[in-house]
Write a protein that binds this DNA or RNA. Structure first.
Lengths: 340, 340
DNA sequence: ACACGGAACCAAAACGTTTTGCAAAGGAAG
DNA sequence: CTTCCTTTGCAAAACGTTTTGGTTCCGTGT
């Protein structure tokens, strides 16, 4: 390990003082150093492979250039990866770096991990959940600029971003209506979470907007698993007046609907059209035909969250905002016109 | 933002010098401070909510307590999340924290990101890929303790961990043999990567060990997508002497095999048994019946990698090792006895 | 000739720790 | 009463930056 080259080495090599080096490197518009010397210093620094020690500069200016990302779980779904990547990309573009920490459900552990982030003097924190839910901000975060990602809280002073569940559902259902469907069934989640209520509302909105009368027997709720979707779809499609299209709460439930259709000898999309929500490519791309679905924009939410917290850090005072992000439709092959 | 409490505040509150506070807090066995004072100082520190500034201590002892995790992509699969979580858990247990950075395929970007990690004085780096492959270590990492995760390199001086592809395949195939199958087909990946060769070798090993003659026409290679698996399985199962069981390169290809079986009116596992590799729960748990598969231990590899790099940092000199980790079988419902 | 101002640069302090070298106090041995 | 440890404590230096407050030098107006 060759001894790291510091600012003094650069100063010596360039024949100037460390002060001048610092100014030459940091001040874009160098009022303190002649343009010529500035260029010279920069050349020397580059040649020496000088890389400033951020511990030192962080200590000096009380700015670590580090962001913390605390999330509840990083598992089964690829959502967490997408969020992290979005956060990391946005941070990188602005010269920051992100420390990832995850605590499962253990709030004791979470507290200790936040303490750890604090010790590293993170400039801000993105507090993330991996599915849309209401949370309370841990008290340990008081005093640190924080924004919520895929979560909301009662406190109107903290910024947050979540997917627009209502809009997402409307988008999905509109796709079915556009294809000509009027007898549309919905398979909803049994859990009492924002997505459940929002998507149901969006479903009704879309139908109402198009003057479609909804048969309440075409709404069934089930466990948010493939098996739940399968059984619900089985029930719906076995009715005397089955829906010609199914709007499923999630891609996994949609996968269950595929299984039900296959079991009943129904062709997708000729006999029944299906849409989901999530755009879990692992599923939606793998099904046959591909699943038309609405994408949950985790990558973009990650980007937004760090950009927002960086704005708060770099020029504070902007009023907080609670954003609901629109979700794009991803068309594959599971939607077609209803059988005549 | 209440002004942070520093070591001087603690010293003043406890009525001792900062030196004493430092010793009281850091030296487990305090030769410099009386046990009684030590306890007193610790109490005061806790009451004040003192949290040491790691920028300062890192600067002082040339140890940032930060690890870098550089990975190529964090996308579609949940693997990245599992690796990160494993890495983060292991790091936390030893008082470290991890900075995540990902560079896609852009090696220019990768270089700048590694530079950034260096500026933050990371004590070590885990260089990760999200599927097993050969890599060259970026020169920027020279001089930083580094271990490879899900990747290998020609250099025998760097430690690495990858899944044991051969063993994984053997495990999968053994499960089929154990159920009584002898006519076993394999659907392999067309790509020239370690997994392709290793799993083929494991397939042959298992057959040979049980004295099973392999019909080379029961081996087909395809694109590692669901569609590839579907078409390959369609071809195999339509033969005059179809295999009674299919060993698929991946869970996604296995999903394709499910689709083929369904299309041919074959029941799983009664008419044909199927095993995969990956344990992508999103798929293997969602299929019907559940897919028996071999898990790729990304979480454990993440743990191992950071433990190894921390060992290298904390007491250097241990000879490097290239580890191949065994992969456990996860039994669900896709394997049964061959039809009599 | 003199004061004044601006340009270019530098020395030193500060950020919050850890650790080395030293000092004071107390006790035991001579 | 010295002398010499041992115990306990402290002051100060160091880590690598940034930035404040100069200082030097030179040119210009009076």
């Amino acid at each position: 390990m060759t001894t790291r080259v510091g600012i003094r080495e650069v100063a010596k090599a360039a024949g100037v003082s460390v002060t001048t080096v610092s100014h030459a490197l940091n001040d874009a518009t160098s009022s303190r150093v002649k343009a010529e010397t500035q260029q010279h210093v920069r050349d020397v620094a580059k040649n020496l492979g000088y890389a400033p020690n951020r511990l030192a500069s962080g200590l000096r200016n009380q700015r670590s250039q580090i962001l913390g990302l605390v999330s509840d779980e990083i598992t089964t779904t690829p959502f967490a990866g997408a969020m992290i990547r979005g956060a990391q990309d946005a941070a990188y573009e602005r010269g920051y770096v992100v420390m990832v920490v995850n605590s499962g459900l253990d709030s004791e552990l979470e507290h200790r991990e936040i303490t750890m982030l604090q010790q590293h003097q993170v400039d801000g924190v993105v507090y993330a959940r991996l599915y849309h839910q209401g949370v309370e901000l841990p008290p340990a975060l008081a005093g640190i600029p924080t924004v919520l990602l895929d979560a909301v809280t009662g406190d109107p002073t903290v910024s947050s971003i979540v997917p627009d569940e209502v809009d997402a559902a409307e988008t999905a259902v509109e796709a079915l209506i556009r294809a000509g469907h009027t007898r549309i069934g919905m398979i909803n989640n049994v859990d009492d979470i924002p997505a459940t209520h929002g998507r149901l509302e969006g479903f009704h909105n879309a139908l109402r907007r198009h003057g479609i009368q909804h048969d309440p027997r075409h709404l069934v709720i089930a466990e948010p698993e493939t098996s739940g979707g399968r059984e619900a779809a089985l029930a719906l499609l076995s009715r005397p007046d089955p829906p010609t299209a199914l709007f499923c709460f999630s891609d996994r439930m949609a996968m269950g609907a595929y299984q039900a259709a296959t079991a009943l000898g129904l062709n997708i999309p000729d006999d029944v059209s299906i849409v989901g929500i999530d755009n879990l490519e692992l599923i939606s791309d793998s099904l046959w035909p591909g699943l038309t679905t609405v994408a949950l924009p985790h990558y973009d939410m990650g980007r937004w969250a760090v950009n927002r917290v960086l704005d708060d850090i770099e020029n504070p005072g902007r009023p907080p905002e609670q954003v609901r992000l629109e979700c794009p439709l991803v068309e594959r092959g599971s939607v077609g016109p209803p059988r005549a």
